[in-house]
Nucleic acid binder design. Structure first.
Lengths: 109, 109
DNA sequence: CGTGGTGCTACGTATTCCGTAGCACACAGC
DNA sequence: GCTGTGTGCTACGGAATACGTAGCACCACG
């Protein structure tokens, strides 16, 4: 399994350690953005998260969750399940302008 | 090869046709965001783009470029090479807030 | 003809992802 | 204790995707 990309270290396709490169590597992994997106309105259990993502395989979900936890974007609260950390919520907020863009893309593309 | 995700149609993990789902599928493909990023300051030839992305294999680069062209984000101008379309530039602009976030992520994570 | 540039493809291998099944644990009701 | 149901999570085999190398066809320049 590929290592979780971290700013300051070499990632796939770049050895400069620049944070943007680590981010591009992280976000370019399948299901990762989708998982963050599905957590937008509150915590979800492992199984609820699976269902929300169209029943993706638990193998991949667990791999992505490990990467998200290692990156500090998601945390597991025993009571409520998986939730975005404050850092993860900031990422989501900065991603929101892309939702508007997607709407325009749908009308044009 | 997997179909290029389009808003209004079923994509991997969602059959609602919502634009955001198509976007999440598209952006979640390896190297795609990186390619858009490397085109941020002007057109690049196929080979220059390969080099900028850390010499990724031409197979994958060509696959991603086809997806980006099908999506209307990138166009090939015979004279200068591959360049972002206006739509692609809008996407890049809306992605820029994430660069700031990555810097903060580097300090915290 | 030779050299060097372009976009792009073939092919075999390595990695990643998927789908199904099922584990270990905790808690509730009986 | 014994079921039933929920939790997070893992094993394993097969499918899809990515990689790395080599090289093709084309075009311009000399």
């Amino acid at each position: 399994m590929a290592r979780t990309p971290r700013p300051g270290t070499a990632v796939r396709g770049s050895r400069t350690g620049r944070p943007i490169m680590a981010l591009l590597d992280l976000l370019g992994r399948r299901w990762l953005l989708r998982i963050v997106w599905e957590l937008r309105s509150g915590p979800l259990t492992f199984r609820a998260l699976r269902e929300a993502c169209g029943d993706l395989s638990p193998t991949v979900l667990n791999t992505r969750l490990k990467e998200l936890r290692d990156s500090g974007l998601v945390a597991l609260d025993g009571a409520e399940g998986y939730a975005l950390t404050p850092l993860g919520q900031e990422l989501l907020e900065r991603f929101l302008p892309l939702v508007d863009w997607a709407e325009r893309w749908a009308r044009r593309g």
